[in-house]
Structures are given as structure tokens and as C-alpha cells.
């Protein structure tokens, strides 16, 4: 999943002038884009002070917090969209967080990297280890990436939690994008991004 590809899909989904919360917003580049092109009222959440400083320098409002400790700072439905992009893999309690996202926001947007993707399986099969690409940084004992979830497992979780998929994009290797699921997608899809709502 290339950030640019995910960012532009998220941008298409975000309604102009909506209120957006971006969890694990990094340096605020996605929010900057949404503020500029969608005129959203956005706030980012970050745990790292370096990123806080970068967000502020980009003119992005940012809140320093550990999102694993919940979103109790925000009232129910205070946002139109709550985004969790390229962050799910570091979350200790993903179910709790997804529920929180759909408490404070009308919709949740979550991107998922598919651990079931064929290349990851091959790496495990031949090398007996998780690839650096999946782990992003560090070694097994100090990488922040602690969740290795397949597309299949993630979709199962959503079903269990009574969450509806409003829209989705499935990323194929070499740049292809699908809007709906396909045969063997748990093997062939690199990652996906979902717009979610609580079942009504």
C-alpha cells in the first residue's frame, strides 16, 4: 500500500467541511491534504512529541495521547470521520479502539495491511520469519508492530462487532485496486482500506 494511494482514496470519501479525527496522524500530511482540499476541521492524535512538533509546524491541530488508552477525551459523535491509517498494526486493543472510533465518529476509516498476502506467506515459509516490510522497523522484540492480521481475520472481526462496511478498496500488487472482494483475496490482496459504520 503506497501512502499516496490510500490518502487519495480517503480524500474521496471525506465530505467537504466535515469534522475529522486522525488517529496516529504522524506528521499530519494526510490531515494537511484534507484541510487544503476538503476544507475539513481536523485534529490529529499522536503519541510522539517529534510528530506533535511537525504537525504544529504544518498548522495542524494535534492532541498528544496514547490512543490505546481510549478516546474518552471526546464526546459521542463529535466527528464525522475518525481515521486509523497505517496504525492498526501497533494497537494493543484493536477491538476496543474500533468501538471507540465508532462512538466518537459517525464513520470510521481504517487501513489494514494483509498479513495473508502471498509474499508475506512465502517469506515466512522460506525464511521462517516475518519480513522487514511487515515489521516496518526494529527486530521482533522492539518493533512497534505487534498485530499481524490477515484480511480474512479483520473482516471476521468486523462481522463479530456488528460493523458494516460502507465502502472498501482492496489493493493488489503492481498498483491494481478493487472495490469488491474477489476469489482468493486473502492471498492476493496486499492491503485494504475500509469505511465503516455501526450496524443500525
Amino acid at each position: 500500500m503506497i501512502p499516496e494511494q490510500t490518502h487519495s482514496i480517503i480524500e474521496q470519501w471525506i465530505e467537504p467541511e466535515s469534522r475529522v479525527l486522525d488517529l496516529g496522524c504522524g506528521d499530519g500530511s494526510l490531515l494537511s491534504r484534507l484541510v487544503r482540499d476538503r476544507r475539513v476541521e481536523g485534529i490529529g492524535v499522536e503519541i510522539s512529541q517529534d510528530m506533535i512538533v511537525k504537525c504544529l509546524a504544518n498548522g495542524i491541530s494535534v492532541y498528544q495521547a496514547d490512543i490505546d488508552r481510549g478516546l474518552s477525551q471526546w464526546d459521542d459523535l463529535s466527528f464525522d470521520f475518525v481515521i486509523l491509517n497505517a496504525t492498526l498494526q501497533v494497537i494493543h486493543r484493536p477491538h476496543g479502539l474500533i468501538n471507540e472510533m465508532l462512538r466518537v465518529g459517525r464513520s470510521a476509516i481504517i487501513s489494514v495491511s494483509n498479513f495473508g498476502f502471498v509474499r508475506n506467506r512465502i517469506r515466512v515459509f522460506f525464511d521462517g520469519r516475518i519480513s522487514r516490510e511487515v515489521r516496518i522497523t526494529g527486530s521482533w522484540h522492539n518493533t512497534p508492530v505487534i498485530r499481524f492480521v490477515s484480511l480474512e481475520e479483520f473482516l471476521h472481526s468486523l462481522h463479530e462487532m456488528d460493523i458494516d462496511i460502507v465502502d472498501a478498496r482492496y489493493f493488489l500488487p503492481w498498483g491494481g485496486v478493487m472495490k469488491t472482494r474477489a476469489v482468493l483475496d486473502n492471498l492476493l490482496v496486499k492491503g485494504a482500506v475500509f469505511m465503516l459504520k455501526r450496524e443500525t
Partner: peptide
């Protein structure tokens, strides 16, 4: 549109007078 930062320090309340580096960056 309000931002929030919590600076890590052992200096207690007086940190607003003594912890210059973090406050300056922010």
C-alpha cells in the same frame, strides 16, 4: 481548534520555567 502536548519531565510544576527545550520546539 486546540492542540495539546504533555511534556515528559521530572521537574514538576516548575517545569514551565525550567524545561525550555521542549516548550520552545512546540
Amino acid at each position: 481548534s486546540v492542540s495539546f502536548a504533555e511534556i515528559e519531565t521530572d521537574h514538576g510544576h516548575d517545569a514551565f520555567l525550567t524545561d525550555i527545550e521542549g516548550q520552545t520546539l512546540i
